[in-house]
């Protein structure tokens, strides 16, 4: 049985969660269904609801097994699905500053070489993407953005590079990521951002919600240095 955006599959996980699957492969319609159910659940949580985790094509719903069970939670989710709206849930647009100074973009020249573009054309392509936050993962604040234009989509490197600075702007395949920690990565480092994803704000500690759209704005090295101070 293959799940679809209109006919999801509910998979029980251990004693405490249900995974709602809207597709078996990356698919915008499936992701839209994930966002819709996530928002409907946030607005109308069931008894014993703990947390929900949206990903590309599925939504994890964790519950308290002392209060409820898989069947009760699944029934609640089915009710939410039948009352769904037809519009795509609206995310907010977030701006991320990016500096492509050669010292901060160690892979820009290689990406240019492998795509047959000039470095300036790679930058233009990166800035032209329609980015949206599909999910978080890997580490706190690591938001996976879909929307990298096809002309600069490259497979990840064969092996990871260690000690990549926080704030690095990375691409691999259709995805883009702004790192929040010093971490190894096998993605291509094409710039550096001074925009904090971990905002340090108590009310809004993460810049993005899943479903937000993201727009990159180019800044000069001088502006980067001022913003990073």
């Amino acid at each position: 049985m293959i799940p679809t955006p209109d006919a999801p599959i509910f998979r029980p996980i251990a004693e405490r969660a249900v995974l709602v699957e809207f597709g078996a492969a990356l698919d915008q319609a499936a992701h839209t269904s994930v966002l819709r159910l996530d928002q409907a659940l946030a607005a109308n949580p069931c008894a014993g609801f703990c947390e929900a985790v949206p990903a590309f094509v599925n939504l994890l719903v964790e519950f308290d097994p002392l209060t409820t069970d898989h069947a009760t939670v699944t029934a609640h989710l089915c009710r939410l699905l039948t009352t769904k709206t037809t519009t795509r849930p609206a995310g907010n647009e977030r701006e991320v500053l990016v500096c492509y100074d050669p010292a901060l973009s160690p892979d820009l020249a290689v990406v240019a070489q492998q795509t047959g573009l000039t470095a300036e054309a790679v930058i233009s392509a990166h800035l032209s993407g329609d980015y949206a936050v599909f999910m978080y993962g890997f580490a706190p604040g690591y938001a996976y953005l879909g929307g990298v234009p096809a002309v600069i989509q490259l497979d990840r490197k064969p092996s990871a590079v260690r000690g990549v600075a926080a704030g690095s702007v990375l691409i691999a395949g259709p995805q883009c990521l702004v790192t929040t920690l010093l971490m190894p990565t096998g993605w291509w480092i094409i710039g550096r951002s001074p925009t904090p994803i971990l905002t340090g704000d108590a009310v809004r500690p993460f810049l993005f919600d899943v479903g937000d759209t993201v727009c990159f704005r180019r800044i000069t090295r001088a502006e980067f240095d001022r913003a990073s101070r």
């Binding site: 990903a55 590309f56 599925n58 994890l60």
Partner: peptide, 30 residues
């Protein structure tokens, strides 16, 4: 090539070479 999906503490993840790992307190979330 399954799309990344959410993970819980206690997930028994099988890597590409067939090795099992049980994910614990500081697990990756997807």
């Amino acid at each position: 090539a399954i799309p990344s999906e959410p993970i819980l503490r206690g997930s028994v993840q099988i890597s590409g070479d067939g090795v099992a790992t049980v994910l614990l307190s500081d697990h990756q979330t997807t």
